[in-house]
Nucleic acid binder design. Structure first.
Lengths: 194, 194
DNA sequence: GTCTATATTCTGATAGAC
DNA sequence: GTCTATCAGAATATAGAC
């Protein structure tokens, strides 16, 4: 099958998403123009519309893909002690988010730029992720492994603490990923009274 | 002294800042137009330029005023034990930020929309605030009151945890401000090994 | 699939009447 | 101090040639 001259559908599509990801993370969705994305990809603005119906879908697709990835990678707690489940979750969250700084940044900075319908979808996925941790804490409290007044609040506190790492941690800094995981795991463990 | 017809300089100025604050917090700086701000205030777009040289100054002034307020209100640690200093800081941070959700949201969401020069100024103030907590932890470790591996990391962790409260806490919810302060203080205290 | 060209609307900011 | 009118440019998105 001969290919049309100038045709690069299999390679341009991912590049559009990649450029949008990068630019949205650095400048913010509202501050990035379709022309800027096109320029980064190396095509004209009109060509972008072969890959996305509009700018909003570009943002939504990026966020949804990220949430799908997170939810698909969260560790299975089956057969693990409450303490081990919590440690698994903490180390996973840090490592996973560390490898995707742009996605993480967009996922919680650009929520307000989603249409109400798109927001509903993403928000549901975000709550599903939080419920993983809340379930671990709930079970651990029932089993007497943790001393937490309110598991919902502890869930918010732990996730905020862990996600905050992305604001300051850079690879090649004075600390390795493992050292960061160790220190945060220690703080989380003591904070929940384990 | 007679006043010019239609003159409201003493009342319109604050209203412009208030409208900008509200709109920037809800939609983001880049997504808000000067016409939108003017509409909220009840004037035409051109009139805004009697109160701000441009849109960027509007954002910068809001952020700088907020940082000035925070830095001016942070509790004086003099004569307090390490433990009391930490408790003071935690309770202050929660209460202060709870009363200014819009300012807080802007202060950490709109950093990237500042010009490089303005960013420098705000970033310096932000670091000054963080150093208050770091100093408390440093001193506490030296005095043997806290068990913290790395005070810099613990500082980031605590501030991220506390600031995260603004994403979920709403007045009139199931928890009082005092109950939230109590629970977070308990988590911080145990996390730093006090 | 990509290009150029364009429709339409909106943007930040300014000038000058009142 | 506020208004109306306007400038100059940028925005999203589409149409049609190739």
């Amino acid at each position: 099958m001969a290919r049309t001259a100038g045709s690069h559908s299999d390679i341009t599509g991912p590049r559009v998403r990649q450029a949008a990801l990068r630019l949205f993370a650095r400048q913010g969705y509202a501050a990035v123009s379709m022309r800027q994305i096109a320029s980064e990809v190396g095509v004209q603005a009109g060509a972008l519309y072969n890959y996305t119906p509009d700018k909003q879908s570009l943002l939504f697709d990026l966020m949804q893909a990220h949430m799908r990835d997170v939810l698909g990678a969260v560790p299975d707690p089956k057969g693990r002690s409450a303490m081990d489940q919590l440690e698994d979750f903490v180390r996973f969250h840090i490592a996973f988010h560390f490898g995707r700084p742009d996605e993480v940044f967009i996922a919680y900075m650009e929520l307000r730029n989603l249409t109400p319908e798109n927001f509903e979808v993403i928000e549901k996925q975000r709550k599903l992720y939080e419920s993983h941790l809340e379930q671990i804490l709930d079970n651990g409290v029932s089993a007497g492994a943790f001393a937490v007044q309110d598991p919902k609040i502890a869930t918010f506190a732990v996730i905020a603490m862990l996600t905050g790492i992305n604001t300051w941690f850079r690879e090649g800094g004075r600390l390795s990923l493992e050292a960061v995981q160790d220190q945060y795991w220690h703080m989380v463990r003591t904070a929940v009274g384990a």
